[in-house]
């Protein structure tokens, strides 16, 4: 088996995550799509770290994880806040900034 399989898998996960963001209207689901994309990128980093024999990739993946955690906290807080004021978690309902 080639190590490239990991990269292909990561690509598949990334594409699915991206499509989920575009297709799903529930903010939480779209947000999970974003998380999936981040994790796919992490898998790439880890695979390349192994390919090059350099741990820096893993360190970067670690940072991605930390930042993603912070992002999740804020993102969910925003979703909760919007839900409270507008009674909906649908992305299409939060379209007040259009011209």
């Amino acid at each position: 088996m080639s190590i490239l399989n990991y990269l292909v898998l990561s690509g598949i996960l990334f594409a699915i995550g991206g499509t989920a963001v575009l297709v799903r209207r529930n903010a939480i689901v779209a947000f999970m799509g974003v998380e999936l994309m981040l994790n796919a990128a992490n898998l790439t980093l880890v695979t390349f770290a192994r390919m090059h024999g350099d741990l820096t990739g893993q360190v970067i993946a670690f940072f991605v994880m930390v930042v993603a955690a912070a992002e999740v906290v804020i993102g969910l807080a925003i979703i909760v806040s919007i839900f409270r004021t507008r009674g909906s978690a649908s992305l299409d309902d939060a379209s007040l900034l259009k011209s």
Binding site: V21, L22, R25, A30, L91, D92, A94, S95, K98, S99
Partner: peptide, 10 residues
């Protein structure tokens, strides 16, 4: 600019 974040991300 239809205000839909999904359009923008698309």
């Amino acid at each position: 600019q239809n205000g839909h974040v999904r359009s923008y991300s698309a």
